[in-house]
């Protein structure tokens, strides 16, 4: 009798990820209405395989170094086609110097565009700056509304943005 009771649960026990947590994450997607038992099991299993694959792949890319670091993962994510969906949440890290250079490049580009305007009238220039800020703000709000349902992706995006600005 005891043997019979342990064998059916073996299939679930071979999973390491908590099935309830996987379900919570799946349900956080607003389009999903109902999830079958076998679907839930397979998603959990697939996620385990995915974690295995991502770590193995990153380790190989790192020339089998003695440690696995974020930069190895980011490198694989940025170069591997099938991992494209992670590109936004796992950007390559850059140094402060690189970041400053990027900002300088951007500034020099935009200033060369509006060179004539800024010299002719300072008032009109500040006006146009305000407009630009407003429009970008409102577009941000729209994005927020669209993504508002998916709080997980939002939070991860925010964090990744912080990571790019060390």
């Amino acid at each position: 009798m005891s043997n019979q009771q342990t064998s059916p649960s073996k299939g679930i026990k071979e999973l390491r990820l908590p099935i309830s947590r996987v379900k919570t994450i799946m349900k956080s997607s607003p389009q999903v209405e109902a999830i079958g038992q076998d679907c839930l099991f397979l998603v959990a299993k697939a996620t385990e395989l995915f974690v295995h694959y991502l770590s193995e792949e990153s380790h190989q890319k790192s020339n089998k170094a003695g440690n696995l670091e974020y930069k190895h993962l980011a490198e694989v994510v940025q170069t591997n086609e099938t991992l494209e969906f992670l590109r936004e949440i796992m950007p390559r890290k850059i140094t402060v110097r690189q970041f400053k250079e990027m900002i300088d490049d951007k500034n020099s580009e935009s200033s060369s565009d509006s060179d004539t305007d800024s010299q002719s009238d300072s008032d009109s220039n500040s006006d146009s700056d305000d407009k630009v800020e407003n429009s970008s703000d409102s577009s941000h709000n729209d994005n927020d509304k669209k993504n508002g349902n998916n709080s997980l992706e939002d939070s991860s995006k925010d964090e990744s943005e912080e990571e790019t600005k060390p």
Binding site: I25, M26, T47, F50, V77, I89, M90
Partner: peptide
């Protein structure tokens, strides 16, 4: 984090 995103994807 990547695993969570994978589940959603």
């Amino acid at each position: 984090k990547a695993a969570s995103i994978f589940i959603l994807y």
